[in-house]
Design a protein around this nucleic acid. Sequence first.
DNA 1: ACTAATTGTAAGTCGACACTTACGGTAAGC
DNA 2: GCTTACCGTAAGTGTCGACTTACAATTAGT
Lengths: 103, 103
Amino acid sequence: MANAYRLFAALSDPTRRAIFERVAKRPQAVASLARGLPVSRPAVSQHLKVLKEAGLVTDRAEGTRRIYQIDPHGLGAIRQWLDRFWDDSLAAFKAAAESDEGE
Amino acid sequence: MANAYRLFAALSDPTRRAIFERVAKRPQAVASLARGLPVSRPAVSQHLKVLKEAGLVTDRAEGTRRIYQIDPHGLGAIRQWLDRFWDDSLAAFKAAAESDEGE
DNA sequence: ACTAATTGTAAGTCGACACTTACGGTAAGC
DNA sequence: GCTTACCGTAAGTGTCGACTTACAATTAGT
């Protein structure tokens, strides 16, 4: 399972984020993605590899082309991390705010 | 307002994530944070600066010390981004899955 | 005023990574 | 079978950033 670190690291790069968002809109092949981006096709391939290892996309062969699709599991992991962190940190935040209230 | 790119970039570094999580548990000063981490104190300061600019933490002076605290606004921005992205991408994912269903 | 404590910043170094070109490998079409 | 199209990977390069040490600034205590 992809940990939160890998997920954030995968989404930290602007180009990779753009690729991920385009794949999220609709499944696409590598060349199709590279066409609308200011980087070369191999660069897109490398980014997709990172996204795949992070659990954010999946790929399937279709002839010579490779179709990349979003993997809901990745977003689910982020949401899970966020939910847990949300509760903990917000509770601590409220506790700190209340302890300051008496001053 | 901090955009999603800055947030993800801020949380992509492991050391910075550790600092953020410790600050989330309870407000702390810089030296206190540096004590439990394998990096120098200036490094912690630099990380806190990034977290602050991303809208993830706030700071207030307390004597010569500077207390860093979590900023709920930052997590809120992540959640907002995730919610919107969740709906869009999941809709596209379902649409793609259903279009494959007939094959 | 002087000292000590705490912090932010400047300058420099080193490794990671995003990108490129070049190459090899696989599937479709004539 | 040969060419064409599409893709992943290897090798090399340049840049960004995480880290360190050194220094300056502010505040509390004596």
